[in-house]
């Protein structure tokens, strides 16, 4: 084929392709891309659990079983009693601290739902060895964390059947974003431009704390 003939052939093919494309997108809404997900595939990834218990797998685990597992797999970071090692997350205690200068936000003091603990342990714990626990082990660990927070008794066995009966005390203290009402005064068409304050005083210095990585001394000015 000569060069020009080839070019004409390509141009003709392109015209057809462009002519067809709009017809396709107008004719039917679906692209036909992708495929149907198989039930086994959905089961492998869809492990999420909601506060109403939707998504919980069959199974159960006791506080006692949870305690043994916790000491073996969790205590290195979270401490034997969920008190936290170093700066790793504290899981227990902190009740009554939320209004203080140093609020301790634990499963017992802060988290609104027990399902979050189950869901998170199952998907992301132990740190660095995620998705290695069986459902029964996750039930047991969740039960132990609840017991560390005095929310269930030491002989408690957590299961899919009784899960929704566990309520966390701080649930009622969460409410939806209300900034557009409670912070309405931040919308202001004419902010002050001149003489907005009588005097300005410096009330705090970062340098006093000196926590910035390699803070340096003063620069030179020419």
């Amino acid at each position: 084929m000569s060069k020009s003939a080839k070019f004409i052939a390509i141009a003709a093919a392109a015209t057809i392709a462009f002519a067809v494309a709009p017809a396709l997108s107008q004719g039917k809404k679906k692209s036909g891309l992708g495929r149907v997900a198989l039930p086994e595939e959905i089961a492998a990834w869809d492990t999420d659990v909601r506060p109403d218990g939707a998504g919980l797998p069959p199974g159960k685990g006791s506080v006692k079983e949870g305690e043994a597992l916790f000491q073996e797999q969790c205590a290195a970071c979270h401490g034997e009693f969920g008190e936290g090692a170093g700066r790793w997350p504290v899981l227990a205690g902190g009740q009554g601290s939320l209004k203080s200068e140093g609020p301790e936000k634990t499963v017992g003091s802060f988290w609104p739902y027990a399902s979050t603990t189950f869901d998170y342990i199952r998907r992301a714990m132990p740190f660095g060895n995620a998705q290695s626990l069986t459902p029964d082990q996750v039930y047991a660990l969740t039960a132990y964390v609840l017991q560390l927070n005095d929310l269930v008794k030491e002989d408690f066995v957590l299961s899919r059947e009784n899960f929704a009966s566990v309520k966390l005390p701080n649930e009622k203290n969460f409410y939806d974003d209300d900034r557009e009402v409670s912070e309405k005064h931040f919308w202001n068409k004419k902010p002050c431009m001149t003489n907005c304050k009588v005097e300005v005083k410096v009330t705090g210095h970062a340098r006093v704390l000196d926590v910035t990585p390699d803070s340096k001394t003063g620069p030179k000015v020419d």
């Binding site: 005083k201 009330t203 000015v221």
Partner: peptide
């Protein structure tokens, strides 16, 4: 806060 020597610091003001 930018000082006379050009150094700047994170501060809080009243």
């Amino acid at each position: 806060l930018v000082r006379a020597n050009g150094e700047a610091e994170n501060v809080e003001v009243s």
